[in-house]
Design a protein around this nucleic acid. Structure first.
Length: 413
RNA sequence: GGAGGGAUUCCCGAGUGGCCAAAGGGGGCAGGCUGUAAACCUGCUGCGGUAUCGCUUCGGAGGUUCGAAUCCUCCUCCCUCCA
């Protein structure tokens, strides 16, 4: 029992309350009834990445202890269109789009969760039935003072920045979901703490036992840096481009993970690897004492994660690709291939080729790269932007260390 | 409802008639060093097949002017203060 609690609380930021968790676990064991662990998800962004994986990994731990995950898709909320990020004027999604998103979403989620122990629900099921009177009586469970306890609301309030009334409604809707689902535990990112706690209150006022609330940290993106003993960086998100998607190619995932800064690696280990903290501590100590090379530790992390999202074989291949490409600086075997038609009689110019093969986004950029000595053809540095490849040439063209392609020049038609 | 402030390139932010494709910083890319880590040094960073040239860009549409990111008019959006 203590071991279970310790494992489940690893990497958790907030826990309300440990006593509740213990009594629920104890009863679950006694009655042989799995706990219902809720996770709310927004179906607007169907691509899931390592940031989402943190909370999913935690849920997976619950499943391994025999509990049941309720994966709640906030389709009702999405249909209304959360206006808080009004910069982009988020479009209201229609039912078909939501269903499709939900589909791709769940498919990805099952790379981490066990489908047999997962229930997928949609909150339109009960929210759609809640009329105006229902909403008002729901709102009656909450006071403005209580709402203003939420950090970001309080901050905005004191700074005189606007708070929409509807923003008060979202935590209530989310909390009501917990009532409808009779959740035993709800997990979310640490920014969700307030919303999750509202769930507790609403359950109490509906005569239910309040859910246990757990929050996990928001994972920093792969571009996070280490300054003054702290990891500094925005959270992982698709829009910032600092993410590793769980559906990305093994090589891409491996490469991205290898590029994270050393201190960040430990963070990823702790939040995503599923390894025990004693094991990770030992490894970290090994690196500090220089008995383990940091790069080896990082390869271990990358391999582990690629393996989880793809397969052991894919992870091996990704690692090999990484090593030939970057450690040995050899040309890997599987390169993107392009056939490029000559533009003038004696062949195709280098600038043209770089652009066609997507090795440069514009002619200007191609020229620049070339003049800076980044371009190699068959391993030989080419600094003349006017270099021409004759028809029939089959060569490997590289721009910098990362971009390369196999090019065949065909005669002008 | 009233008063005022603002919108500049990927981001922040200078620029109030020509010297502006637009300072500076961030980010990004490339080179050196290396472990595709960090730190550091250097170069580049709107587009056009090589460009003392051309084109597009300073919220949108018009206008003034030999010449507009800069001045005028209208419009859109954002913010602050008062009610």
């Amino acid at each position: 029992m203590d071991r279970q609690v310790a494992a489940l609380c690893g990497g958790v930021i907030d826990l309300h309350t440990e006593a509740d968790l213990r009594s629920k676990l104890a009863r679950s064991l006694q009655e042989n009834r799995p706990l219902r662990i809720k996770l709310g998800a927004d179906p607007t962004a169907p691509d899931i990445h390592l940031g989402h994986a943190v909370v999913l990994t935690k849920l997976r731990q619950f499943q391994e202890l025999g509990h049941r995950v309720i994966f709640l898709i906030g389709d009702f909320t999405a249909r209304i269109g959360d206006p808080s990020g009004k910069k982009e004027m988020r479009p209201m999604l229609d039912e078909a789009a939501i269903a499709e998103n939900a589909n791709t979403y769940t498919k990805q989620v099952f790379k981490i969760l066990n489908p047999d122990q997962t229930e997928i629900r949609f909150n339109s099921e009960w929210m759609g039935k809640l009329n105006a009177a229902g909403v008002v009586s729901l709102a009656a469970n909450m006071t403005v003072a209580r709402m203003l306890e939420r950090d970001d609301f309080e901050k905005r309030y004191t700074e005189g920045r606007p708070i929409g009334i509807h923003e008060f409604l979202y935590p209530l809707v989310q909390g009501y979901d917990s009532v409808a689902l009779e959740a035993d535990v709800e997990i979310g990112g640490s920014d969700q703490l307030f919303n999750l706690l509202v769930g507790r209150e609403l359950q109490k006022s509906h005569g239910q036992e309040p859910q246990v609330v757990m929050t996990v940290p928001l994972l920093e993106g792969i571009d996070a840096r280490f300054e003054n003993g702290k990891i500094v960086g925005a959270k992982m998100s698709k829009s910032l481009g600092n993410y590793v998607g769980i559906e990305e190619a093994p090589e891409a995932q491996f490469g991205k993970l290898m590029s994270i800064s050393d201190p960040l690696m430990w963070r990823y280990y702790r939040l995503l690897s599923g390894k025990s903290s004693t094991e990770i501590d030992a490894m970290q100590k090994g690196v500090e004492e220089e008995t383990i090379h940091p790069m080896a530790a990082k390869k271990g992390l990358a391999h582990l994660l690629v393996q989880r999202f793809h397969s052991p074989e894919a992870a091996d291949r990704a690692q090999q690709d990484f090593e030939t490409r970057f450690s040995k600086r050899e040309i890997p075997t599987d390169l993107p291939e392009f056939e490029i038609e000559a533009t003038v009689d004696d062949g195709a110019g280098l600038i043209h080729i770089l652009r066609e093969a997507k090795l440069a986004s514009s002619g200007k950029e191609a020229r620049r790269s070339c003049q800076q000595g980044a371009v190699r053809i068959e391993g030989e540095k080419i600094t003349d932007p006017n270099y021409v490849l004759t028809p029939g040439s089959q060569v490997v063209v590289q721009v910098g260390r990362r971009k390369m392609a196999r090019i065949t020049v065909i005669a002008k038609s």
